[in-house]
């Protein structure tokens, strides 16, 4: 059995090895952008079914972001929404035959978590100023500085590992079941994977939102309860 931790390059563009997750990501990207373009062309004041669903999704996202950040969701909508939709579609793409979800590989999850990490710093600096943002690391006392720094790293890693572990384990278990029992048996597990995938996409987006919200609001009210979320 192949190790789930190793990715093999499919082909090379010059010196750059292009692996299977990258190809899958491209396909998902193409799908999403195509769908967005089609939807954008048919946007009207009186929504059809597709537009109603899209508005429902964006509205729910706005509500969730507003709940967590406690302010206008507009600056975070694009990032959080994109992460949620991409992770959701990527997780569910595992249900298609022959496709391995990009999120089942550490690299994609690392890229997502990196995005969240950078966005956290960006929004923290933007709303509190550079000095203000750096000061939040000395909360509640300066002794906590190393711990706060480590927390930034570990929570990002936990973000990576959580998504990776959930999706990868699903794929891995299905592979094992397939090799042991054969066709049709892993279908309940695949259904469970769909649920897990949706929940994990939601959790990833919400945690990213929580991190950003904590960075934004820490300057305002010291000591957010969300900071220690793993």
């Amino acid at each position: 059995m192949n190790s789930p931790l190793v990715v093999e390059p499919v082909f090379h563009i010059g010196p750059v090895p292009v692996t299977q997750p990258v190809v899958a990501t491209w396909a998902i990207m193409a799908l999403m952008v195509l769908g967005a373009l089609l939807l954008k062309r048919s946007l009207t004041q009186r929504p059809g079914k597709v537009q109603a669903v899209a508005e429902l999704i964006t509205g729910a996202l706005d509500d969730q972001i507003r709940d967590v950040v406690q302010s206008d969701p507009a600056p975070y909508r694009v990032l959080i929404g994109t992460i949620f939709l991409f992770v959701l579609i990527a997780n569910w793409s595992g249900a298609l035959p022959g496709v391995e979800p990009p999120t089942a590989h550490l690299e994609t999850d690392a890229a997502l978590a990196l995005l969240v990490f950078v966005a956290t710093i960006y929004h923290g600096v933007r709303s509190n100023g550079l000095v203000g943002y750096l000061k939040t690391f000395a909360e509640p006392t300066w002794i906590m500085i190393p711990l706060n720094l480590v927390e930034q790293i570990t929570r990002t890693f936990s973000l990576i590992i959580r998504l990776f572990g959930n999706v990868m384990s699903g794929v891995f278990v299905i592979g094992i079941m397939l090799s042991l029992a054969g066709l049709l048996v892993p279908i309940p597990l695949m259904a469970l994977d769909l649920l897990t995938g949706a929940v994990q996409a939601y959790i990833f987006a919400i945690l990213g939102c929580v991190f950003i919200g904590a960075a934004v609001s820490e300057g305002r009210d010291a000591g957010s309860p969300e900071r220690s979320a793993s």
């Binding site: 990715v7 750059v16 090895p17 292009v18 692996t19 997750p21 990258v22 990501t25 491209w26 990207m29 999403m32 952008v33 967005a36 373009l37 939807l39 954008k40 946007l43 899209a54 508005e55 964006t58 909508r77 694009v78 990032l79 929404g81 994109t82 939709l85 991409f86 990009p102 590989h105 690299e107 994609t108 690392a110 890229a111 997502l112 990196l114 995005l115």
Partner: peptide, 24 residues
Amino acid sequence: TIGLQTINLVVLLWLLGRFFFRPM
């Protein structure tokens, strides 16, 4: 792969922001 995925995601971020979230 990490680099490529990051670039992919940034591009996706921009595209979706441009073609999906803002029009919505």
